[in-house]
Design a protein around this nucleic acid. Sequence first.
DNA 1: ACCCTGACTTGATGATGTAGTAGCCAGTTC
DNA 2: GAACTGGCTACTACATCATCAAGTCAGGGT
Lengths: 167, 167
Amino acid sequence: MHTSFEGELGDRSAWALEHCSIAMTMDAIGQRSSILILREAFYGITRFDDFVRFTQGSEANVAVRLKHLTGLGLFTKHPYQDHGKRTRYEYVLTDKGSDLLPALFALLQWGDNYLQPEGTRPLRLEERATGEPVRIVARGASGTDLSLNDIAIIMDSNRASALTKNV
Amino acid sequence: MHTSFEGELGDRSAWALEHCSIAMTMDAIGQRSSILILREAFYGITRFDDFVRFTQGSEANVAVRLKHLTGLGLFTKHPYQDHGKRTRYEYVLTDKGSDLLPALFALLQWGDNYLQPEGTRPLRLEERATGEPVRIVARGASGTDLSLNDIAIIMDSNRASALTKNV
DNA sequence: ACCCTGACTTGATGATGTAGTAGCCAGTTC
DNA sequence: GAACTGGCTACTACATCATCAAGTCAGGGT
C-alpha cells in the first residue's frame, strides 16, 4: 500500500462523501460540458457563441453551464459591444476559475500520455518566457516533485473523532 | 485575454472534441463514481467491499466501474487470501492509474480552497520525508510555479493545417 | 450435506446530462 | 416599423449514470 492515513482510517466512511473536496468539486464542475467550457476559457475564449462552437455543445446546454459556473463564481460577465451590435457579455475567468488550471491541465497531461494515439501530441504547453515545456506536478515545500509514495494523507484528528462510525 | 495560441485558432473547432486529451480523459474516467474509486485507491484502498463502503456507491456500480477502470489499465487484479477465506482479488493501481495523482489532488486542492466551509480542511497532504505541505502546481523547466498568464498553448502546425474548417 | 458469506451479476427504475427544435426578445439595419 | 440577428429560454426526447432488490456462484465452516 502506497499512501497511509495518519489517523483513524475506520472513521472515514461517514465523512468521506459529505466533506470530501474531490466529491464536492466533481459535483460543482464535474460535468463533461463544464470541463470543456473551462478548457475553452483557459484557451482564451470568452464569448457565448465561441463556447458553443468550440465545445460543440448545444446552445441550450452551454447557456445552462455558463449560468451555473457564473453562479459559482468561476466566471464574471463583462459587457462589450461590437461595432453596430448591441451590448453583449463576455465570460471572464475569476481567480476562482483560473485556479482550476492545475486540475484541467493535469487531465490534459494524462490524456496526452495515455490516451492519445502513438506519437500524437495535439497541444503543447510552454512557459511563455523561456519556451520550456510545462508540467503539472505535486511539489513539496523543498521544491521536489513527489509521487504517491512520498505523500502522507493526514486527517484532522478532532474531526475524525467527531464522526459516527457507521461501517 | 490570458493565454494565446501560436497557430491558427480558427481551425481548432473540428479538432477540438475528437482529439482533445481533456475530453478523452473525461470520457475515460470522468464519471463521479470512477473519480471516487480512484480517490480511495490513492488513499490505499484495494478491496471491493472497501471501495463500496468508502465511496458509498452501490455494489453494482462499483463492480461496473472497477471492471471499466481495470479494462483501461488503471488497475490490475492481484489475488490474495485471508485466513480461512477463499481467494479474492485486490485492485492495485498501475503506473497509468498512479499518474492521475496530480489530477485527483488538484481537484482536492481546489475544493479545499473554494468549496469547503470557512476554516475547514478535512484532509492535509504532507511530504512524508519532511512533513511539509504538498501542492499541485504548473511548473516550468526552470522549476518556477506558473500561472495562466505565463503559459502559451501551442498547436502542432501541420496538424492544424490538416483540419477542415467547418466553422 | 447444508448453510453462510463475499463478490459479484442481472434486471427494473429513477435521476441527471445533453441534444434538438422551436420560440422569444432587444437592438440594428434597412 | 418591418426584417434580421445573436443570445438565450422552454420543451421534448434520449442516453448515460446510478440505485435498489434479487439472484448467482465459489468456496469454507460445521
